[in-house]
């Protein structure tokens, strides 16, 4: 994998990020109505409004604010939250790791269920299991994530009090239900993808060759078929990451999980623009970094790309 390739990817990422920052920043500047007025509420006096405006530097021309924000960004300064009166960076640094954990656990759950299910469904095509899987995934795709979350909450926390309803208990406890919800959100799509990828692979000539050599069916599926099938699944899962991020916002809200999603939603209620900006930025950065990672490591799993580089 050449240095040029990596370097160009990094540069591309950086540019995309810059574009997103700019769009976020500029669009917040274009919010209809006066953000300060909206923030302080209808009872604020003119002096108060002017004061806050000055404090936040909102009376400066747009391009100066833009540059200021960017330079601040480079120093790790994401602005200051109006609502909490704390640096945005600080707030995010508390909640972001929690969201990452949530997504990571959800990803693990999701893959652990979806891939085996997809494989079995493909290998036992036309069986009752296959039809059940296809039916379930079809239904599951139609259930909005919050509906599922609520149902899960109801069943497992209310009806059968396995998990805590509120945010008490250790991290392990509070992460399970949201992670489960989030994983169910993406699992059907991944299972479907796995199934169709496996079906494609199993039809290939090299699988017949493997069988003709006398390999056990298990070996054929696990060693020959799956390795090939996993390649598109890898990229697909990477694309799914975006879904995870968006879904995490809703999931956190349902379970009152103290992650970045909850923070951002609250910031939106409060019209806390610096905080909103910061959250969006961090979300976008995560998303872009993950995509970049997938792009770069894709070469590692597919030897055809590896050697061609």
């Amino acid at each position: 994998m050449s240095f040029r390739f990596v370097a160009s990817k990094v540069v591309q990422t950086f540019i995309t990020l810059l574009i997103i920052v700019s769009i976020v920043m500029l669009s917040l500047a274009m919010v209809p109505g006066d953000p300060v007025r909206l923030m302080l509420g209808p009872y604020a006096t003119e002096e108060q409004i002017q004061l806050v405006r000055e404090q936040l530097g909102l009376n400066l021309p747009l391009h100066i604010r833009y540059v200021r924000y960017l330079t601040g960004l480079l120093q790790g300064d994401l602005g200051r939250s109006y609502h909490y009166d704390l640096p945005v960076a600080e707030l995010i640094s508390i909640v972001y790791p929690r969201t990452l954990w949530l997504v990571a656990v959800a990803l693990i759950f999701s893959l652990s269920i979806a891939i085996p299910v997809g494989v079995i469904s493909a290998v036992r095509q036309y069986s009752a299991l296959d039809y059940a899987v296809r039916f379930l995934t079809y239904i599951a795709v139609c259930i909005p994530i919050f509906v599922f979350g609520i149902m899960l909450l109801h069943l497992l926390a209310v009806r059968i009090p396995i998990f805590p309803v509120a945010v008490v208990g250790s991290t392990t406890e509070i992460i399970v239900l949201p992670a489960l919800t989030l994983s169910v959100y993406s699992a059907p799509a991944i299972a479907r993808m796995t199934r169709s990828s496996m079906l494609d692979v199993v039809r290939q000539d090299y699988i017949t060759t493997a069988r003709a050599k006398g390999l056990s069916e298990r070996r054929v599926i696990l060693k020959h078929a799956l390795r090939n099938a996993l390649i598109p699944i890898y990229t697909y899962t990477g694309l799914q990451f975006g879904l995870f991020l968006g879904g995490s916002i809703i999931t956190e809200t349902i379970f009152a999980y103290p992650g970045m999603g909850t923070l951002m939603v609250n910031a939106i209620y409060e019209r806390d623009y610096p905080l909103i900006q910061g959250c969006v930025l961090v979300f976008a950065l995560s998303f872009i970094l993950v995509n970049m990672f997938i792009d770069l490591t894709y070469a590692l799993i597919d030897p055809r790309i590896k050697r061609a580089r």
């Binding site: 000539d205 069988r211 003709a212 050599k213 006398g214 020959h224 390795r227 090939n228 055809r304």
Partner: peptide, 26 residues
């Protein structure tokens, strides 16, 4: 029995398009 005794050992087979009959990731 087919796997252990026949396939690949007593009877072997080669196919039409070798580019497709060989596993690309191995």
């Amino acid at each position: 029995e087919m796997r252990r005794r026949v396939r690949g050992s007593k009877v072997s087979m080669i196919f039409q398009e070798p580019s497709r009959a060989l596993n690309p990731v191995l």
